[in-house]
């Protein structure tokens, strides 16, 4: 088939195809591809053009261009009528997505991640301790000898006389310091257990994050600064905090940090016991007895530690009023939490 015949043939097939093109973009695109696409019919003409005698090249070149313009302008017309018509895509977009679930991240994870990222920014690295531990790591090494009244503060699950489910993440401090020399700047999140009846407010397990910083010349003033920074990042820069003396056997001085929650509703009165202040975390300067347990020289080093309960923070932040919801796995509950 000669080139001119070929050109003629393409023109006639196009004209017939064109008539059947409906007013929608899809068809238009198909026709466009058939003729003007990279593998379209028009492109099959160029190799033929190469074989044409030199003096006729411009004549055929023009014919090919004319045809190309003809096809393009016709399709353009069609395109514009399609665009102007209202039903460009005949789909009811209000139909639901075909997803079954978008997925969710548990509120406990969300809180842990947020706290981790706040402290990561100021150089705290994450480490992890075991859930099952010994009396030594959980109590003795933290200056809570047997028969110390402070043991009443934490009801413990035992595996045997010496082995127990950790009651706090503070034992991670001991594990870490035993295996590492200062400087230490760590966070340790994890699951802890208390032998307490399950109720709206308490569960037999919960999660904590422990923080520890040990170096030369660490001061109480730095402890305050660090935790105020955390409160500002977590609760917003307008947050009001206060520190008040407390007691933990493994820190001296010990403190608790409260944030001002306000007294705007009945539930504010309930959760703040009418004071407007809400206890957020416990902290203090590492007690020299703890340093003795891990063979750090307390004349040379000082440090601070803090610990906070994740569930409590999650419940405050999201307004969850029953701790059991966190462990039930109700899809209607979970699907609301996303990063």
């Amino acid at each position: 088939m000669s080139l001119s015949e070929k050109i003629q043939e393409i023109k006639s097939t196009f004209d017939s195809d064109y008539k059947s093109v409906k007013n929608n973009q899809l068809d238009n695109q198909l026709v466009y591809n058939k003729y003007l696409g990279r593998k379209g019919l028009m492109n099959t003409l160029y190799p033929l053009l190469a074989k044409v005698e030199v003096n006729k090249k411009s004549e055929f070149g023009k014919k090919i261009n004319d045809l190309k313009n003809h096809i393009a302008s016709k399709l353009d017309d069609k395109q514009s009528t399609t665009k102007s018509s209202k039903n460009k895509l005949k789909v009811d977009l209000s139909l639901p997505e075909s997803y079954n679930s978008f997925g969710s991240i548990h509120p406990i994870t969300l809180i842990i991640d947020e706290i981790k990222s706040i402290f990561n920014r100021i150089g705290f690295s994450s480490v992890y301790g075991p859930e099952i531990d010994t009396d030594y790591y959980n109590f003795e090494a933290l200056n809570i000898p047997k028969h110390h009244p402070a043991r009443d503060m934490q009801d413990t699950f035992y595996i045997n006389d010496q082995v127990l489910l950790r009651t706090h993440t503070s034992g991670s401090q001991v594990h870490f310091m035993k295996n590492n020399e200062p400087p230490v700047r760590i966070l340790s999140p994890g699951r802890v257990y208390r032998n307490e009846d399950i109720s709206v407010r308490s569960y037999c397990l919960f999660h904590q994050i422990e923080g520890l910083y040990v170096d030369k010349n660490v001061t109480f003033s730095e402890l305050k600064g660090t935790l105020e920074y955390f409160a500002k990042e977590f609760f917003g820069s307008n947050v009001k905090t206060r520190f008040r003396p407390s007691y933990f056997p493994f820190t001296e001085p010990s403190a608790e940090m409260d944030v001002y929650w306000g007294l705007n509703s009945e539930s504010d009165y309930r959760i703040t016991k009418g004071t407007g202040w809400l206890e957020i975390l416990g902290c203090g300067m590492v007690d020299p007895e703890v340093f003795k347990s891990v063979e750090y020289d307390s004349d040379k080093y000082s440090g601070f530690a803090f610990g906070l309960g994740i569930e409590r923070i999650a419940m405050l932040k999201y307004g969850i009023d029953d701790i059991r919801l966190l462990y039930e796995g109700d899809f209607k509950f979970l699907e609301q939490f996303k990063k």
Binding site: G123, P183, R185, I186, S221, G225, E228, R242, F243
Partner: peptide
């Protein structure tokens, strides 16, 4: 405790 000034100039060693 609240009269003790908070130190917000964090310093830490890369070794930690």
């Amino acid at each position: 405790y609240d009269s003790i000034e908070s130190n917000m100039n964090f310093k830490f060693s890369i070794n930690s």
